[in-house]
Write a protein that binds this DNA or RNA. Sequence first.
DNA 1: AAGTGGTCTAGACCACTTG
DNA 2: AAGTGGTCTAGACCACTTT
Lengths: 249, 249
Amino acid sequence: MSSTSLSGRSGVSLLYREVKKRLIADIQSGTVPPGGALPNESDLAKRFEVSIGTVRRAVDELVADNILVRQQGRGTFVGRLDRDRFMFQFFKIAARDGTREFPEVRLHSFSKSRASLEEANALALHGAQPVFRIENILSLKGRPVIHDQIVIATSLFPGLNKRAFEQRTGTVYELYQSDFGLTIVGTEERVRAEAAGESSARLLGLRRGEPVLRIERLALTFDNKPAEFRVSIVDSREFDYVSGAQPTA
Amino acid sequence: MSSTSLSGRSGVSLLYREVKKRLIADIQSGTVPPGGALPNESDLAKRFEVSIGTVRRAVDELVADNILVRQQGRGTFVGRLDRDRFMFQFFKIAARDGTREFPEVRLHSFSKSRASLEEANALALHGAQPVFRIENILSLKGRPVIHDQIVIATSLFPGLNKRAFEQRTGTVYELYQSDFGLTIVGTEERVRAEAAGESSARLLGLRRGEPVLRIERLALTFDNKPAEFRVSIVDSREFDYVSGAQPTA
DNA sequence: AAGTGGTCTAGACCACTTG
DNA sequence: AAGTGGTCTAGACCACTTT
């Protein structure tokens, strides 16, 4: 964390935006690791030479983005992409009755090849760069329900291999975060209905042609840079994709 | 602080929450109509006997919830549920290439009957209360793509009839807002894939059994009270349900 | 008791819109 | 020029957690 002062009110830069950028930089550089505590607010105010209110505003936004977590009386921490967070921010499949459970994940295949045109486009790669392809089968209530096909550029995940992937202790995103310093901060998803293809049908125990959900998810890191492209095929006979709502006071 | 109007700091009530509630009450009562301007912030501060900062915090949250809209130099306004807002907050269907257009809406049927068990449950009705049933066909790029089935309790929409519904000038939610004082503030949606039923297939020009998206949407007003239950059947061969992303600085 | 975040205040000054 | 929201400050005091 460098500590020069923040622009003497000279130009376009809003102070709280600037503070926010610096805090993000500290997270990306690993200066403050996942789960680690930030300095307290008055120290941050001194370091950045702004008032506490300005620090609070920057932190407020990072909390709203689920990047930081405040705990009154304890401190402010970098959010870990653990199971709880995965369930609340990223996993949108719920049973018909509304129940939500963490899926049991089984690795089905791990390979390396080149990006298709569509994949390169989604991941903002220049040409058919090498990618890892990972297929997972996710089970809910003991039965296979989701067929995940993950595509990630090898350049962002140097040294990743099947063993490391399989032996991770937490979520996939937590692996990205802790082993490659890559924090997923949001996703864009497109959902449609299609007839089950052969491999998904076999893996999910469906007849070919049965209607399934196809979810294309682009996972983004800071500055909206794409980091992972994932296609999920979901047997939606007993499970729904859920979205939305807005709790007001 | 002279503690007359807003709780003298005695207990649980946070001042900005209290201000927020009062502002919502003014919107619900029609004291400030859709599109109308709020008093300026210093006047609000005087009226509520709080500082401007506290007013700003309350307004900040209402802006975040898309209920109010700030315009620097002009004022703060009650958001109208017009086409623009509908497109950005509620309409989640986009062409495969990402294009989004406002759908052409055609009324297919308007009737009155009693709520099914599922509908009564969704709308929090006590028993099989009377409801209006409205079916719309929504077209995109000149072709029918969405079959909407709307269910609303007659008790919330007294005097609504086919003519009023058909001759509305704006969106359905704008009608709710302007004619019945009922503001939709958010939705909960559940999406799954199913085989097209007979009527939807006919209306959308599909073969029976073709995979379609089924979207069940519960639209909520203040305090998360359910106001409308809607089932949308979507021909997703050329259109997707889109969700998500999170713009950070 | 000490340290953290959470709420609230009072006021200066800036940026934008309108008459 | 007058009126609006937008940013930033400096500091008091409250609520919660830990030692």
